[in-house]
């Protein structure tokens, strides 16, 4: 098959190549610069920003993990993210399945409400959520004198899960609807229960959609800092909030190495994951096309 574009060199093609290359460099350079800078000694930060470090100054990482407690925050982030994913899948998969396959009264309202929920950004409603948790803590002050709902990583996970329910159900419902009903009919004839049909027949078939949902929610939970900042005001912070503190501390102390090392600690896991699953991420985005 011959296409017009391959039928000869187009004028201006070199120019567009140059332009696209330049834009790509503008993305790469700042990220790469941070990676390099994380290995510099304190004295090497002054002068030209383009010099390479003389040696691998790994002390920055020791400082970041230990002194700045990024190691501990890392653990909190892992816990909160995993728990959030468990919560959101546990409630959204059954709900999406039922919405896709069953008729029930009030279904229209449920669908419209969930669709409207897609447009409500969490950052608009964090203040009322925070106040609500403060209220609950106050009501239970006799049982938990130190508070239970605020500064509780599990609670943060629950809020993450709850606020991503509309997106998750939206994506999963669409996928469940695209699966032919034959499999369920066959399973039904074999005498499988509704629950068994959902978990053993439909869930395995919906794996691509579930993977997509996990990816997007992972990124959303891992990268959030507004909700974490609000709901975990105490010592147990997430990685992003820890990095935010490191930024503030660096302004005062002028020790950039530790900050750059902290940034790398936050960047690398996400970058690795992205490199592994980029194809699926980009496909999923084209299919869902809603998560900003």
């Amino acid at each position: 098959m011959t296409t017009i574009n391959k039928s000869g060199p187009r004028p201006g093609r070199g120019l567009t190549h140059l332009l696209v290359g330049a834009i790509t460099l503008l993305i790469v350079i700042p990220v790469g610069w941070v990676l390099v800078a994380s290995l510099k000694r304190k004295s090497e930060f002054f002068g030209s920003p383009w010099t390479l470090p003389e040696g691998l100054h790994l002390q920055n990482y020791v400082d970041a993990f230990g002194g700045a407690q990024m190691g501990r925050y890392f653990a909190t982030s892992v816990l909160v993210t995993l728990l959030g994913l468990v919560f959101v899948l546990a409630v959204s998969v059954p709900a999406a399945y039922v919405v896709a396959r069953y008729e029930f009264r009030g279904k229209g309202i449920v669908e419209v409400a969930l669709l409207a929920g897609l447009f409500v950004n969490v950052n608009y409603i964090v203040v009322p959520i925070f106040l609500m948790l403060v209220d609950w803590d106050r009501a239970l002050v006799d049982v938990f004198p130190d508070g239970f709902f605020l500064d509780n990583p599990a609670m943060l996970s629950l809020v993450y899960a709850a606020t991503s329910i509309p997106f998750t159900i939206y994506l999963l419902t669409a996928y469940f609807r695209s699966i032919p009903g034959d499999f369920e009919e066959a399973a039904l004839l074999d005498g499988a229960s509704r629950f068994r049909i959902m978990t053993r027949v439909m869930l395995p078939m919906a794996r691509p959609a579930v993977t997509t949902v996990i990816l997007f929610n992972f990124l959303a939970y891992w990268n959030d800092f507004i909700i974490a900042l609000t709901l975990l005001p105490g010592e147990g912070k997430t990685l992003q909030v820890g990095l935010l503190n490191l930024m503030a501390a660096q302004k005062a102390a002028a020790d950039p190495g530790r900050l750059y090392a902290g940034m790398v600690i936050v960047i690398v896991p996400v970058l690795l994951l992205y490199a592994l699953i980029q194809r699926r991420l980009i496909q999923g985005m084209a299919a869902g096309g809603v998560k900003g």
């Binding site: 990124l219 990268n223 800092f225 992003q240 909030v241 935010l244 930024m247 936050v266 996400v270 970058l271």
Partner: peptide, 8 residues
């Protein structure tokens, strides 16, 4: 940049 956090 889309997979990096806003803090980063």
């Amino acid at each position: 940049p889309n997979v990096l956090s806003v803090v980063v």
